[in-house]
Every structure is written in C-alpha cells, then in structure tokens.
Amino acid sequence: MTQHTATIASDAFALDPADRAAILEERAHYPYPQAASIGALKIVQQRHGYVPDGAIPAIAETLGIGVADVEGVATFYSLIFRQPVGRHVILICDSSSCFLTDYEQLRDALIDHLGIQMGQTTADGRFTLLPVCCLGACDRGPTLLIGEDLHGPVTPEALPALLEAYA
C-alpha cells in the first residue's frame, strides 16, 4: 500500500535489465520490498564488482523504497563495496583464532607480496585486500577467502603459489 517517490540521481549509472529483473525476483521472496535491498546491492555488486553511487537511487526506485534507506544499508554492511575492487577480493580473517595462529605474519606477507595496504587494490586491478570477521574455519587458521575459495592454514611461504591461481 505504501508508495514511495524516489528521486533518481542523474548519475550515468543504468541498472542492467537483467539485474533489474533479478532484483524484482528477489523482492518476491519477502513480504516487504525493503527486505530485498541487501540482495539487490549484491546483485549490482555481482556485475560491477562494487556498488557505484548511481546504483543507490536506481535500487530505491526499482524496489519503491527510500534512497536514504538503501544508502543506509549499503554503508552498513562490510561485504558491500562502495569503491571499485580488484578482480579478486582477498578477505583475510583477523579474528582471535587466526590471530593466535600467526595471522599477523600472513597479513604482513600479503602486504609485502602485493605491495598494498589493507583496504587497497593492486595497481593492476588484480587483488583487493580486506579484513574479515572469523571465517568459521578456526581449526585451519590462519585463513583467507579469495573470491569464494577458503584457504587455510596459509603460511607466508605458500602465499605466492596460492595467489598464482588467481589471474
């Protein structure tokens, strides 16, 4: 019953028709459209690697919800990226069990090897390095998640070979 009027930013962003359809499909899973907002952000991210600013009003309009609500969600969750990321996002677990199994050495090795700091993307656009909460693989710490692949335990020595697999 509630209708919303969203103003659409003039950003050059255009929602891909397939994504739009996927968002509407997602919307059907829930009693209220707001519930699909996180799914919608993920759909956009799937295509672009991140969620461009212009996508926010586009999603709001597609779902018929407030723009600030979408932005509020898009800035809250850590797996929604608001800046371009590399082809492969490396999420390194920095929680206690990994910390106790030498996370810091692994992190330093990654930083050395990639030549970037946490939160940065390599110049060739290949990797982005980010911290993540406990990956639920504490028996294999230290762990990291590259794309959808979980690795652990990862030793600094094994890193170069491991990363080779990600072009």
Binding site: H4, A6, T7, G66, V67, A68, D69, G72, T75, F76
Partner: peptide, 15 residues
Amino acid sequence: YKDYAGGEDLGAFGA
C-alpha cells in the same frame, strides 16, 4: 526526519 515527518533523503549511514 524519516519516521515522524516522512522524509526520504536523510539517513543514518555507516556503522
């Protein structure tokens, strides 16, 4: 702004 007055352009962002 939002709940009481129904505005849609101001929000809470970040965490």
